[in-house]
Write a protein that binds this DNA or RNA. Structure first.
Lengths: 228, 228
DNA sequence: CTCGCTTAAAGTGTCGACAATTATTAACTA
DNA sequence: TAGTTAATAATTGTCGACACTTTAAGCGAG
């Protein structure tokens, strides 16, 4: 789910070179291969990936739009530096946007989509029982679940903001801070309540539960980062 | 307020050429000089503004990031086409994000910021009394008010999403659909309630009022567009 | 006359080079 | 030796040219 070929085009694989470069660099940054705060040297990267500086600059521009790099005129681009404050800010935005997404999903998700989501949740449940799925659940499964609800909102603005912009930043934080929580059991239960509200077509309740869920997740992160 | 020199850099005027081009094109698109849905011909615009295609492409890339143009590989870029459905989507996103912004503003705005906001609101009141300020109120004053609350949230993610991305799209709709509402009196009152909640440091109430305010605004738009 | 193919034109994607700006080093003075 | 300035190197910004793709026009067969 998380590694769709390109940004948001429905076409097969990324056609243009700058697109592929963008995907490659985004993955490298998100997964930490290129360290946060490090400088992006255009000549060096261009040589490294055997592309022109022009194509590279286009890719960098799109990374900047997604707030994965910051560029200052005549000074070049740097990978963003992650901070506790920014992570909190992201959770606040998520609470607002995903709360709305859950509300809309309760109105707009099709029956088959709901069933697929329930199936996905059952799988997560099994993985938790088997105990070795904890890491997976927090790293991918959780985002997977949220991802589908956002899609279910059918609001393209919302989908773009969350799936194209925020989620990549969030994944970067997870890689960087090693955010595996012992909260998977609780998160699983909260997901369960949430999907029930959606299946019951209760927008108000869906939004409420989603916001509580994300607030809990945020508090968990706060605890985790303050003790380290 | 709405025409800051560049995107979000604190530097003086836009230094780089692509930056100026970006500002120019953004204004031209938002104000309708370049028609929605029209094709962006790189050679033509490059000649028209006497710049290289490279610089132009960088500017277009940033317009794409703000969803003011859509680009398809090997086919070029077009100014976005505005639709009723998309406008509704934007209002839903605004309700979520600005609701959160109001909540945070109630927690984080300084006393002086609150006073300035009250002063601004009084001016709006006078303009409405004098009757000839209606158009102004809806066109700029309203966004001005919302703009300041968003700033008052002190959440940079939120500020970026709303002020750098969504608001320009919204202004484009206002220019394009000629959205002047007869709702200025009611909107003024709602702004009044809202600022009281903020001054009282009541986050819950502030968010509630802001969401109601935006929902009202959305319903007004729905009415207006359905009768035309 | 229409449909399909071939071919020319225009447009986008990519590249390497030059110009302008910033960072670095070296020399020089106090 | 420390600080300042000048010269040099490296990096970014901008440009024009070439390669590939898409579109349009022209042409021929049915």
């Amino acid at each position: 789910m998380q590694n769709r070929p390109s940004s948001n085009t429905t076409d097969p694989v990324s056609i243009t070179l700058a697109d592929r470069l963008f995907d490659t660099l985004q993955r490298a940054i998100v997964e930490g291969e290129i360290a946060p705060g490090s400088k992006i040297s255009e000549p060096e990267l261009a040589r490294q990936y055997s592309v022109s500086r022009g194509s590279l600059r286009e890719a960098i521009g799109r990374l900047e739009a997604r707030k994965l790099v910051e560029r200052k005129p005549n000074l070049g681009a740097r990978v963003v530096t992650l901070s506790y404050e920014q992570l909190i800010e992201i959770y606040q935005v998520r609470e607002a946007l995903e709360g709305m997404a859950a509300r809309l999903a309760a109105q707009n998700m099709s029956e088959t989509e709901i069933e697929e989501l329930q199936t996905l949740l059952e799988e997560h449940g099994h993985e938790i029982e088997e105990q070795h799925g904890q890491a997976y659940f927090q790293k991918q499964g959780d985002l997977d679940f949220h991802y589908r609800i956002v899609q279910g909102s059918k609001n393209h603005q919302l989908i773009g903001l969350l799936c194209d912009d925020l989620y990549h930043l969030l994944r970067m934080y997870r890689y960087q801070f090693g955010m595996r929580s012992k909260r998977s059991q609780q998160a699983y239960e909260e997901h369960h309540y949430l999907i029930n509200a959606i299946a019951a077509k209760d927008p108000e309740m869906a939004e409420l539960l989603m916001r509580q869920h994300i607030r809990s997740s945020r508090r968990n992160v706060e605890r985790m980062l303050l003790e380290s």
